[in-house]
Amino acid sequence: MKINDSVQYRNFYSMGTRIDIILPGIDDHIAESVCLQIKSELDRIEEKISHYKESSVVSYLNQKAHTEPIKTDPEIFLLINQLIGLSARTSGYFDFGLGFLSENMKHASETYHVVHDTMTTLSEIGARNIVLDHDENSVLFKSDKLKIDSGGFGKGYGLDTVKKILKALKIESAFISFGESSILALGDHPYGKSWKTGIQDIFSETSSLFVFTLANEALSVSGVNPKNKQKYGVGHIINPHKGIAIDCFRQSAVAGNNGLIAEVVSTAILCAPDESRHLIMEQFPEYRAIVIDYDQTNKPTITYTCNLNDGENY
């Protein structure tokens, strides 16, 4: 779809979400070709990393890696290695190995807190219980309860992949959205400098609570909003230190160069207590962050900011 003579728009579903692509400064024919390449690559990644797909590499690991070391696809091995490192750098407040808990939460949200001995389970699962053999490219899980949940990193990894494709094709300006929770903004808006991206109130469609100015950067928004609380009875994000879902309304947003890191850090600072957020952000000095909390009357307050650029405001 052509928005006007200078801007193209496409969208499609991939990686379990809606991908929206705005491409200024190229013609219809090139936009079609670019988007086909992006879709093809995202579908390929989804086939490998989605824990919802039975045939994916991640699903295979979830089924088998507790029985013996599994020699693994090099791309996924490198990704898991990177995620283990990121989990450590966030003091474990990002953990992609809690799939067992999130599945149980979705299927039995009402009884979850009662049924499981959470702390015992937590000690058996999570990134720290994944063993990598770099000589063999193999992955071993120390427990049969350990399951990778790709929901916490897939879109970020996808964003970085899209960025590589656009760079290779010499596309200098683009705005890419993965379900409006992960954004990649390249170059400039067709009618202004950079891309101004606002974080909205989860309870109203009023003006943005905070505006990031994105220049060749990714932005990740994590949060517990009324819709997913309604769906699961609790929030859908699990605090890795406590093993329970975050039960209050809260949003976090992180901007920076790398989409995967932005997604990881936004999840981590959403889960971490106030005193731990600075420690996490010290590990990622190039990234900017905010946290928005909602009080009993659903009034939003920005309760945490870090490394914001001049001019970024609320």
Partner: peptide, 14 residues
Amino acid sequence: FDVVPIGGASWVPD
């Protein structure tokens, strides 16, 4: 040239 608003009340989880 204006702000792109994301993650608002009408936003549907992925």
